[in-house]
Design a protein around this nucleic acid. Structure first.
Lengths: 149, 149
DNA sequence: TGCTATTTGATTGTGCACAATGTAATGTTG
DNA sequence: CAACATTACATTGTGCACAATCAAATAGCA
C-alpha cells in the first residue's frame, strides 16, 4: 500500500488531508449555488450580504459593515459605490464624525427584500442536508469564526 | 422577545442563521492564517495548492489541475504563467494532444517542498481544534464537496 | 474522407479580497 | 491649546475567481 512515486510528500502535504482546501472549495461552490438566484436580482454574493445586514439595520457605517462581514474598506468602498450607483444604498458622511460614512438602505434596496425571501430556502433545498447536519456544521463554523476573528 | 425594528426580515434572511456566510468568512480567515507562512515562500494560497498537487504528481495538465482544484482556465492560466515566470513550474503543450498544456514541477518548485513541510502543522496549531473536531469538520466538508461538485 | 461536434486552453472584462499607503477628522496628552 | 497619535475611509496595485467568448486541435460520423 506504499506510494513509490518519485516525490513523497508528507501525508500532511496532501490535499485530501487538509481542512482548508475543502473549506475554500465548498465556499466557492456555495457562492456558485447562490449565483443563479442572485442573478435575478442582479446582485453578487457580497452585495447580497450587505443587503442582508441593511435589511436588519437600515443604517450602518462602513466600519460596522466591515466588522460584521470581516471585510475592509478596500473591498467595501468600491462595492458600496457600485451599489450606490444602482441606487440600492446611499452614502453620506456622518455630520457628527466626518470620518465615518453612513450607508443607508435606499428604496430600491428595500424593495429587493421581498424578492430575496425565497433565496435561503431555495439554497437549502439545493444542499440536501438534514437539519441535524446543517445545524452541526453551522455551529462548528460559527465557533471557528468567533475563535479566529 | 420580539424585534420591533422597522424592517423585519425573515429569520432565514439573517446573517446569523445562514450556513454560507460563516463558510465564506472562515475560508477567508483560513487563507489569512496561511498568509504569513506562505509569504516566506513568496506564494499565494492558490499557488500553494497547485504545488501541493505537483509534489504528489510532478506532471499534470491544466485540465487535471482544474478538476482537482475546481478552478477553470480563466483562473489557472494566468496563475500558472506567473509561476512559470518565477520558474516554479514549466508549461508545454502535450505533443500527443496539442490542445493540452502539461504543467511540470521545476527545480525551484521542487525545492520549496521541504520548506513547506512545516506549514500544515503550524496552521493546525493556530486553529486550536481537537483532533476530533478537526476530523469531523473535515469529513463533513469533504462530503459536502463531493456532493456539490 | 470531409463535416460537424467536442474538447482544451487562452482571452477579455467585471468584481471581489487584501496589503500598503495616503488623508482628513477626531482624540489625547503634556 | 499645540503636538502627536489614532481612527475611518479612500486609493493603488496585485492576484484571484468566474462568466463569456474565441480559436485551435481532436474526435466522431455520414
Amino acid at each position: 500500500m506504499s506510494k513509490p512515486a518519485t516525490p513523497i510528500p508528507s501525508e500532511l502535504l496532501k490535499l485530501d488531508n487538509q481542512l482548508c482546501f475543502p473549506l475554500y472549495a465548498v465556499s466557492r461552490l456555495f457562492t456558485k449555488a447562490y449565483q443563479p438566484l442572485l442573478q435575478e436580482l442582479d446582485l453578487t454574493y457580497p452585495q447580497y450580504l450587505v443587503l442582508l445586514l441593511l435589511w436588519e439595520h437600515p443604517e450602518l457605517t462602513v466600519k460596522a459593515l466591515g466588522e460584521k462581514l470581516l471585510l475592509d474598506s478596500g473591498t467595501l468602498t468600491p462595492l458600496l459605490k457600485r451599489m450606490e450607483q444602482r441606487q440600492l444604498v446611499s452614502r453620506r458622511r456622518d455630520p457628527r464624525d466626518e470620518r465615518s460614512v453612513i450607508i443607508t438602505l435606499a428604496p430600491a434596496g428595500q424593495a429587493l427584500q421581498h424578492r430575496a425571501e425565497c433565496i435561503p430556502e431555495a439554497l437549502l433545498a439545493k444542499l440536501q442536508l438534514s437539519p441535524d447536519e446543517f445545524n452541526q456544521l453551522r455551529s462548528q463554523l460559527t465557533r471557528l469564526l468567533t475563535q479566529l476573528s
